[in-house]
């Protein structure tokens, strides 16, 4: 399915700069680096747990740049009052992981 990624280029740039500021190792951020950033959103931990489940597409306990963008996208939408989906809609899957 060739749908554009819902993360817009300008959002991706913002998320990428946050990603870089967190000190990725080998292009990945571990859970203990991402966790405080997500907790900072003040969203309930069960919501953040679901955000992580949906973002860590390869379930390696780390987020790469695209996975981190998915996490941030979901957090920002949740802060705007949109529910976090139970499974990742295809337009939210990064093009690099389809």
């Amino acid at each position: 399915i060739d749908t554009p990624w819902v993360v817009k280029p300008e959002e991706k740039m913002k998320f990428d700069s946050i990603f870089d500021s967190l000190g990725p190792v080998g292009g990945m951020l571990s859970g203990d680096k991402v966790k405080p950033v997500l907790l900072n959103s003040k969203l309930p931990v069960d919501i953040l747990g679901r955000v992580w489940e949906l973002s860590d597409l390869d379930r390696d306990g780390m987020l790469d740049k695209d996975e981190f963008s998915v996490a941030m996208y979901l957090v920002y939408r949740a802060l705007e009052g949109e529910p976090v989906p139970m499974s990742l809609p295809p337009p939210l899957v990064p093009p690099s992981k389809r």
Binding site: G31, D32, V34, K35, L38, V45, D46, L48, G49, W52, E53, D56, R59, D60, G61
Partner: peptide
């Protein structure tokens, strides 16, 4: 799919 048992890779669980 949640892993059935075992260590979770989710730092929020």
């Amino acid at each position: 799919q949640y892993p059935a048992g075992g260590s979770s890779t989710n730092p929020f669980l």
